[in-house]
C-alpha cells in the first residue's frame, strides 16, 4: 500500500508541557485512519502539526512527497481541515460559506461541485440559511462540505462528532463512508471508542505517545483474555467488592460490569460467590467478545499502573 503520510520523530513541546513526544508512523492512501484516546493525549496537536497550523519542535513529516517543514504551501493546496470548534462564518449563508472557501482555494467553477456537495450532505434545502441558524449536526456537515470544496487528497477531521446528536452522528459517518469511495484519505480524531470500530486502522494516543497502532480486529485479538459481562443489583458496590477481593480488571459501563478474566468456567464461580457473600444478586451473566473499548481501557490501565509502580 502506498504511504501518503510518513511521520518521523515528530515532537511538539509547549513550554514545560509535551504536546506530542517523538512519534513515528505512516498513513496509507485512501485509508480511514483514527486517532483515538483521552482528552489531552496529543490527538489535536498531531493533527494541527500535520496541517501546518503549528510548527514541530523536532522531527518532520512527509505528506504526499512534500516536506512539512519546507513545502507547507504545497501541502495546504491538497489538504482539508475541520477544526474541533465550529469555525464558519455564522453571518454568511450556507452557499456563501462554501463559495468563500472555494474562492480562497482558487476553485474556479465551484457551482457544480457545490451543488454536488450540498446534495451529498443533504443540505440543499438549507442553502439560503445563515450558518449560525443551523443545528449542530448540519453545521458540522456544512463544515465538511467547505473542507471538501477544493477536492483535497487528505482531510483531517478533529473530533467532528463531538457535541452532535446520535442521529446526526450516524448520518455524518454515512457521509464519510461514502466519501472514502472517492480517492481520499481521511484522518479523524475521536474520544468515542464506539466510533473507532469504523476505522481501517487506529492509533491509540495516551500521554503524548502512541500506545498501540493497528487495525481494530488485530487490536481486539491482541487482548488474549475473555470478558464476562455481569448485570447485578448494585453496580457500584460490586465494583468495589470485586476490586478488593480479586485481581481481575473491572470495567463499569452504566448498568453492567465487565470483568476481564482468563477462563469463564474457572473464574465466574469465584466472582459469583464473592458477590453473593456481599448480598449482591446476579441478574444476568454472559461471555462477550472483547470490544475495542474493553481493550483500550485495559491498555490504558496497564500503562498507568506501570507509571505508578516505584521503579
Amino acid at each position: 500500500m502506498e504511504e501518503i503520510i510518513k511521520i518521523s520523530n515528530l515532537k511538539k513541546v509547549y513550554g514545560d508541557v509535551i504536546g506530542i513526544d517523538d512519534i513515528s508512523f505512516s498513513i496509507y492512501k485512501n485509508e480511514m485512519f483514527g486517532f483515538v484516546g483521552p482528552d489531552g493525549a496529543g490527538k489535536t496537536t498531531t493533527i494541527r502539526l500535520l496541517c501546518g497550523l503549528i510548527n514541530p519542535t523536532e522531527g518532520t513529516a512527509d505528506i504526499m512527497g512534500y516536506d512539512l517543514r519546507k513545502d507547507k504551501m504545497k501541502i495546504k493546496d491538497n489538504i482539508g481541515y475541520l477544526s474541533q470548534k465550529f469555525s464558519l462564518y455564522t453571518d454568511l449563508s450556507v452557499d456563501e460559506n462554501i463559495e468563500f472557501f472555494a474562492d480562497i482555494h482558487g476553485v474556479k467553477n465551484y457551482k457544480e461541485r457545490r451543488d454536488e456537495l450540498l446534495k451529498f450532505t443533504r443540505l440543499t434545502e438549507f442553502r439560503k440559511f445563515y450558518a449560525g441558524k443551523l443545528s449542530g449536526g448540519m453545521k458540522q456537515k456544512l463544515a465538511l462540505a467547505c473542507t471538501l470544496i477544493h477536492k483535497p487528497k487528505i482531510i483531517f477531521l478533529d473530533e467532528p462528532t463531538t457535541g452532535v446528536d446520535p442521529v446526526s452522528r450516524r448520518d455524518f459517518w454515512k457521509i464519510l463512508s461514502d466519501l472514502i469511495k472517492e480517492e481520499i484519505t481521511i484522518i479523524i480524531s475521536t474520544p468515542y471508542l464506539d466510533e473507532a470500530e469504523r476505522f481501517n486502522r487506529i492509533a491509540l494516543f495516551d500521554n503524548a505517545k502512541i500506545l498501540k497502532l493497528d487495525t481494530p480486529a488485530h487490536i481486539r485479538e491482541g487482548l488474549n483474555k475473555i470478558v464476562i459481562e455481569i448485570v447485578c443489583s448494585d453496580i457500584r458496590k460490586s465494583d468495589k467488592v470485586l476490586r478488593e477481593n480479586t485481581n481481575f480488571e473491572i470495567q463499569t459501563f452504566g448498568d453492567r460490569l465487565n470483568v476481564v478474566a482468563d477462563n469463564f468456567e474457572k473464574d465466574f464461580p469465584q466472582i459469583e460467590s464473592i458477590l453473593n457473600k456481599n448480598g449482591i444478586e446476579v441478574h444476568d451473566k454472559r461471555m462477550i467478545p472483547a470490544s475495542l473499548e474493553n481493550v483500550f481501557i485495559h491498555l490504558l490501565k496497564k500503562e498507568h499502573q506501570k507509571e505508578h509502580e516505584p521503579s
Binding site: 497550523l53 493546496d77 489538504i79 481541515y81 477544526s83 469555525s87 480562497i104
Partner: peptide
C-alpha cells in the same frame, strides 16, 4: 475568536 482564522490559515492565503 470564532476560529475561522484557522480555516484561512490552512488554506493557501
Amino acid at each position: 475568536e470564532q476560529g475561522t482564522i484557522e480555516q484561512i490559515n490552512v488554506s493557501p492565503v
